[in-house]
Amino acid sequence: RGFLEKAAVKKMAKAIMADPNKADEVYKKWADKGYTLTQMSNFLKSKTAGKYDRVYNGYVIHLD
């Protein structure tokens, strides 16, 4: 289950990176699912340092 969630989160993160207008909708879905910042950090780990920082930081702001 965790692997599928991670894959889904990364897919949506890539969608945000391609079209930032989708961010609020995606952040709301993640918040509704109760994803914590720790979970998001783990889901968005990448071999490329900083690749998903913008998405993660946007989610931090959304939760605030």
Rank of each mutant, 00 (worst) to 15 (best):
R1S: 13
G2D: 15
G2A: 14
F3P: 09
F3A: 14
F3V: 10
L4Q: 13
L4R: 15
L4C: 15
K6M: 13
K6Q: 12
K6Y: 11
A7W: 13
A7S: 10
A7F: 11
A8K: 15
A8N: 09
A8G: 09
K11A: 12
K11D: 08
M12G: 08
M12I: 04
A13V: 04
A13Q: 01
A13L: 03
K14Y: 07
K14T: 07
A15F: 06
I16E: 00
I16G: 01
I16C: 05
M17K: 04
M17S: 03
M17W: 04
A18C: 14
A18L: 12
A18E: 13
D19C: 14
D19R: 04
P20W: 15
P20I: 08
N21G: 10
A23W: 02
A23L: 03
D24S: 11
E25T: 08
V26M: 08
V26E: 02
V26L: 04
Y27P: 00
Y27G: 00
K29L: 14
W30H: 00
A31K: 08
D32H: 09
D32G: 08
K33S: 14
K33A: 14
G34Q: 05
G34V: 02
G34L: 04
T38S: 11
Q39F: 04
M40K: 00
S41V: 09
N42F: 12
F43A: 06
F43M: 12
L44F: 04
K45W: 08
K45M: 12
K45L: 09
S46F: 05
S46G: 08
S46E: 07
K47G: 14
T48R: 11
T48M: 07
T48L: 08
A49G: 09
G50W: 03
K51W: 09
K51S: 05
Y52G: 01
D53M: 06
D53L: 07
D53A: 07
D53N: 06
V55M: 02
V55W: 02
Y56H: 03
G58W: 03
G58I: 03
Y59P: 01
Y59S: 01
V60Y: 05
V60T: 06
I61C: 14
H62D: 01
L63E: 02
D64K: 15
